[in-house]
Design a protein around this nucleic acid. Structure first.
Lengths: 180, 180
DNA sequence: GGTTTCACCGTTCGTCCCGTACTATACGAC
DNA sequence: GTCGTATAGTACGGGACGAACGGTGAAACC
């Protein structure tokens, strides 16, 4: 059953974790889940939702059941190997350093005018924040947080903090109008 | 002179911008610069400092002058094509969405215990912060900020905000001791 | 003045990842 | 039933990634 050994990356575990959370999922389900929860702290392109589960299934970490009819979707579920690998990874306290790719700051560094760049970013984070807060509202009044709720809270916190950062940097740029 | 057309990515511009900033640089210089300034908002592996300038030189965006002797380093400088491409990109206000890869949050989502994970991250950001604030202190008392100083300020702000986020999440996790 | 040691410097390599561009299906409207 | 559009899914090739290793210089020891 353990066909081809592959390297499991953070993205692999993201997919495994989502499938664990929901029992089973198609690639499209995964895509939705990635976009509405995990993406805030683990950004991946949408093709990941199709490629990564196929890779994981080929290596024995997921089972795949092909549906009949129309879009002949494949439904993925965790195998024991998948469950074990995921649990071992999550329990291990070692962490890779966080990675950020923020083009607004990079363009500013490269000589771009910070004002429009930071402005764009501020708007973007505001929108994200509103969206996530909307999702969160649906959970209100439940006691004892569920994992999906916590995930949203992490996302909300992240966008809030980045928003504060961008606003702060915009102020500094504004104050510093005599450019070098 | 325009040998091979290549796709310029954010990382390409990061390298071009660094070389622009310093006039010319070897790969090792680039590596240092990446690690002490840009990496806070545009994370790249160290091999980028060797591979990317070679690619850019092959495509005509950089000139390369090979030094004699010992480590026969190559010193890169911007060509006109490089300068033009960089300026055009920086002036363009369009932005790709920011990307984050934060393993502490991902592991938490996957079922890991948040306390040690967030604790590790908090320590990590504190260290980074201390390091950058140390660099910044060297600039004190100059009037009119230079670009490298602004870059450091952005880095400092980022780590502060992420530190606040992690501390906030740690509090929430602590308060929520009745686990689901 | 040899040679050991160690930190610094630089590159290779194979796998995986990523964005672009495109195709295909479902379904309601008219 | 055909058109339009949102939804669902794929192919592909260059690029990025990180592990692992190889080279270089110079201080330190003798």
């Amino acid at each position: 059953m353990k066909s081809k050994p592959i390297r499991l990356t953070g993205t692999s575990y993201a997919v495994l974790a989502l499938i664990q959370e929901y029992g089973e999922a198609t690639s499209y389900d995964l895509k939705q889940m990635l976009e509405t929860s995990i993406e805030n702290f683990w950004t991946v392109p949408h093709t990941t939702a199709y490629e990564e589960p196929a890779r994981l299934a080929a290596a024995g970490y997921l089972s795949a059941r092909q549906e009949e009819g129309g879009r002949r979707k494949r439904v993925y579920a965790l195998t024991d190997a998948g469950r074990v690998a995921l649990a071992a990874w999550a329990a291990e306290p070692a962490l890779a350093p966080p990675q950020l790719r923020e083009e607004a700051l990079l363009k500013t560094f490269a000589g771009g005018d910070p004002r429009p760049l930071l402005g764009l970013r501020i708007d973007w984070h505001r929108e994200k924040l509103a969206e996530l807060e909307g999702y969160l509202a649906g959970f209100e009044a439940t006691e004892g947080m569920e994992r999906s709720q916590r995930t949203l809270i992490a996302g909300v916190g992240y966008h809030r903090k980045m928003l504060e950062l961008m606003e702060w940097l915009a102020e500094i740029a504004e104050a510093d109008t005599g450019l070098p």
